[in-house]
């Protein structure tokens, strides 16, 4: 790799721009693909570029089939937005951070947000509808509501459902979730919208403690993130 390409790559990473280095291992030619820009050696066909951009969009590094061309995709870390600075959040936020997520906790109750394991996690002390418009969930964002309180969870879920968030999960028993769906249907959300919500949240591992529930939620988020695109 030439230094000039490395420096350009590091600038893309610093600016959180999704990009990829593309290397023809047969000839040592190399390019950097970032948005519409291609720098470095000029060897990629139009078809190659389409494939590289598809790989950037789905965060899939690897060798293009039937070629010697290796694509290394760099994407900004996925984000997790946790609504409710509750017990489970105390475990989930640090776990998600270790797993590589950029974590934001939303809760209007300042004392909750500043306590325990959340002290060094980014927080927005505000009502969820206001905070959610600030975080603007994208295709690499997971949203998890944990408050159990409809006046906090529901507005957050409505915002999440209007965003392209790859994962939406809501804590609560089957009964709680059924009531929630009833309320949200009243808010004009369709059945297809509501089917995006994982509820009860998390993989079924018979989790008992807040930390165990956090593991089940994080596992489900990762499974969704890494699932092969349809």
């Amino acid at each position: 790799m030439r230094s000039v390409l490395l420096h350009a790559l590091r600038r893309d990473l610093a600016d959180k721009r999704p990009c990829a280095t593309v290397t023809d291992m047969a000839s040592d030619r190399q390019a950097l693909v970032s948005g519409n820009a291609v720098s470095g050696d000029d060897f990629l066909s139009a078809d190659h570029l389409i494939e590289v951009r598809r790989r950037i969009a789905t965060d899939r590094s690897g060798v293009i089939a039937d070629t010697q061309i290796f694509v290394r995709v760099y994407t900004p870390p996925p984000r997790m937005v946790i609504v409710g600075a509750v017990h489970i959040a105390q475990a989930l936020a640090p776990m998600a951070k270790i797993a590589g997520f950029e974590v934001t906790v939303i809760d209007p109750r300042e004392a909750f947000v500043r306590s325990g394991q959340l002290a060094d996690i980014d927080a927005i002390v505000a009502w969820p509808d206001e905070a959610m418009s600030q975080v603007a969930p994208d295709i690499r964002t997971a949203v998890v509501t944990l408050t159990h309180d409809p006046k906090l969870d529901d507005p957050a879920l409505v915002s999440a459902l209007r965003s392209p968030a790859f994962y939406i999960g809501a804590l609560g028993s089957r009964k709680t979730h059924a009531k929630r769906l009833q309320r949200l249907t009243g808010d004009g959300l369709s059945e297809a919208d509501l089917a995006r919500i994982h509820g009860p949240v998390g993989l079924d591992i018979d989790a008992l403690t807040p930390a165990e529930i956090a593991v089940s939620i994080l596992a489900q988020v990762i499974a969704t993130l890494r699932a092969e695109p349809a």
Binding site: L6, R10, K97, I98
Partner: peptide, 13 residues
């Protein structure tokens, strides 16, 4: 919390 080392940054250093 720096969890993973950054090899690309190290190369520049």
């Amino acid at each position: 919390m720096a969890i993973a080392p950054d090899p690309l940054a190290q190369i520049e250093r």
